[in-house]
C-alpha cells in the first residue's frame, strides 16, 4: 500500500511521518505529473484551505483529484483538508472538492487564542488526543455521512463511504489510531 499526501502547503510532513511509523510509504503531490504514480489513498493535510484550494486549481490538480475521489479513491482530510472536502462551508463562499456530505464552519473556534487540546471518544477507536488549531467543526452531516466524534456538542470527525475528515490534527500527537483507521478503511 502507498498513500499520496497533498504537499502544496501546511503540515504534510507530519502525516508522512505518521504513515512511516505505520510502515506505509507515502508520495508527495505537488504538481500534475506527481499524479502519474500509483497510490491507494490520499491525505489532505492541515494548513490554510484558501492557499491549498488556490494552488490545487492553478497547478491543475483540482479536476483529476476530484474525479479520483468521486471514483472512490479513499481520502482523509484534516482541518483544512476537511474544508476542502465539505459540500458546504457555512461562512465561506469558496467550496472546493465538495464531495463529502458535511456542512463545515471555518475558523469555528475563533483565532489562535481559541485553539485547544482535549481527549474525546472516536467511534470504533475509543478516547484519543485531539489538537484543534484555528479549527473548523462540522455543523451538520447529511446524506451518506456519519459522525464519528463530538466535542462540546459539535461534530469534529465524520465519514462518508471512503472519505474521512477530522477537524483536529491526529498527525500532531503520537497516537497513530486515526491513521490506522484510515488504512483499515482503505483495506475494507
Amino acid at each position: 500500500m502507498r498513500i499520496a499526501v497533498l504537499a502544496l502547503q501546511g503540515a504534510f510532513i507530519e502525516h508522512e511521518q505518521m504513515l512511516s511509523k505505520l510502515g506505509v510509504p507515502s508520495v508527495e503531490i505537488r504538481q500534475k505529473r506527481d499524479l502519474n504514480q500509483s497510490f491507494d489513498g490520499l491525505i489532505i493535510p492541515g494548513g490554510e484551505s484558501t492557499v491549498q484550494g488556490k494552488l490545487m486549481r492553478e497547478l491543475e490538480l483540482y479536476d483529476p483529484l476530484k474525479k479520483m475521489i468521486q471514483a472512490g479513491l479513499p481520502v482523509f482530510g484534516t482541518c483544512a483538508g476537511l474544508l476542502l472536502l465539505a459540500k458546504k462551508i457555512q461562512n465561506d463562499d469558496r467550496i472546493h472538492f465538495s464531495t463529502m456530505d458535511i456542512v463545515a464552519v471555518r475558523n469555528a473556534y475563533g483565532r489562535q487564542l481559541g485553539s485547544f487540546y482535549t481527549e474525546e471518544f472516536f467511534k470504533g477507536i475509543g478516547k484519543i488526543p485531539m489538537t484543534f488549531i484555528r479549527a473548523p467543526y462540522i455543523e451538520d452531516v447529511f446524506g451518506e455521512a456519519q459522525p464519528l466524534a463530538t466535542v462540546n456538542n459539535h461534530i469534529v470527525a465524520a465519514r462518508h463511504n471512503k472519505q474521512l475528515a477530522t477537524a483536529f490534527h491526529p498527525e500532531l500527537n503520537n497516537d497513530l489510531s486515526v491513521h490506522q483507521y484510515f488504512l483499515d478503511m482503505i483495506k475494507s
Binding site: A7, L8, Q9, G10, A11, F12, I13, E14, G46, G47, E48, V51, C79, A80, Q112, S115, F116, Y117, T131, I133, R134, H169, L172
Partner: peptide, 17 residues
C-alpha cells in the same frame, strides 16, 4: 506547556507557505 505546544502547532500549519 500545552499552550506552547498549540502555538508551535500553528507555525506547523503555516509551513510551505
Amino acid at each position: 506547556e500545552k499552550r506552547f505546544e498549540l502555538n508551535k502547532n500553528l507555525a506547523q500549519m503555516l509551513k510551505g507557505g
